[in-house]
């Protein structure tokens, strides 16, 4: 059991007029190796929640266990937690600062106390993992394209060799191809390295395509938690809280409403195509 969130509450500016109850009694378990999609509109508490998972924010109530240990307990090293639970912020390229790509990616491992050689080895491995070729190692990070910068920034966290990788909107602002490249890379990381991944996203289409499980947050609470099919069955409730199911879910619902005998659980293009093909050819799904 990798991460266990127990009765976590968080209140901003407690006791003032600006008090905001950002997290309300959150209970979650994220087992090792899962690919989790965390969804919610702006202000739903999802960014606050992920910052709790690696100890950047401290809960005002409740606690979090990492591998069974209370992260707020005595003698627990937050620095170690941050190396185990890597967090990639939104627009991570804005944190790049070194003279070249490789040195920048070394920042994390060096902070963890690795020697220059060890750090470079880890940095190189991380850069190759995100698909950055060796020829870029000595280039200034500021000369790269937007998508490349983003990948370097993700490598900066990966070089710390985390067991859990949390990405806050990793595709924001990228064009469709850049978005697919990043998401494919993340999916490959999970597959090849068995890293637990938490993907914070607005896009239902992206999430539906990759994740094992979706957690929907609304007003600081967990509204739904389950496999994509289950969660998207609540597409009407999702709309009420300002979200939407993937477009294909609506399409299947529309078909069904017209009287077609289709399986409406499809959440990806491929599943929808399967369901429609079966229906057209008169097979049972």
């Amino acid at each position: 059991m990798a991460i266990k969130v127990k009765n976590v509450n968080y209140t901003y500016a407690e006791g003032t007029a600006y008090e905001i109850h950002a997290l309300k009694d959150i209970n979650l378990e994220i087992p090792d190796g899962q690919f989790v999609g965390l969804i919610g509109h702006t202000g739903s508490g999802k960014s606050t929640l992920v910052q709790h998972l690696n100890g950047l924010m401290k809960a005002t109530g409740g606690t979090i266990y990492y591998n069974g240990k209370d992260i707020y307990g005595e003698g627990f090293s937050m620095k170690e937690l941050r190396s185990k639970v890597g967090l990639v912020f939104q627009y991570p390229e804005h944190q790049l600062f070194e003279i070249d790509v490789l040195t920048d990616v070394c920042f994390g491992p060096r902070n963890l106390g690795f020697s220059k050689e060890e750090a470079e080895e880890k940095a190189k491995a991380a850069l190759r993992l995100v698909g950055m070729k060796e020829e870029y190692d000595r280039r200034s990070p500021f000369e790269l394209s937007g998508g490349q910068k983003r990948r370097v920034a993700i490598a900066g966290v990966l070089a710390m060799e985390p067991e859990v990788l949390i990405l806050d909107e990793p595709t924001a602002g990228l064009d469709p191809k850049g978005r697919d490249e990043i998401l494919d890379q993340i999916a490959r990381l999970k597959k090849e390295r068995g890293i637990t991944i938490v993907l914070v996203s607005h896009s239902m289409e992206d999430v539906a395509r990759y994740v094992d499980r979706i957690i929907v947050m609304n007003q600081g609470q967990v509204k739904f938690d389950g496999v994509p099919k289950e969660v998207f069955r609540h597409y009407k409730e999702l709309e009420e809280i300002g979200l939407a199911a993937p477009q294909v879910t609506y399409l299947m619902q529309e078909l069904k409403a017209k009287g077609a005998e289709v399986d409406t659980d499809a959440t990806t293009i491929r599943e929808a195509a399967d369901a429609i093909e079966n229906w057209l050819k008169g097979r049972q799904g």
Binding site: D175, P176, K177, G178, E205, P246, Q247, V248, L251, I269, R270, A272, A273, I276, E277, L280
Partner: peptide
């Protein structure tokens, strides 16, 4: 469009996928 690093709307993509399957 894909070659140009772009995308198409979901409905278009689904129609395209179905067409590839001979529908």
């Amino acid at each position: 469009l894909k070659r140009l690093r772009l995308d198409v709307p979901q409905a278009t993509l689904l129609a395209y996928e179905l067409k590839k399957r001979g529908i």
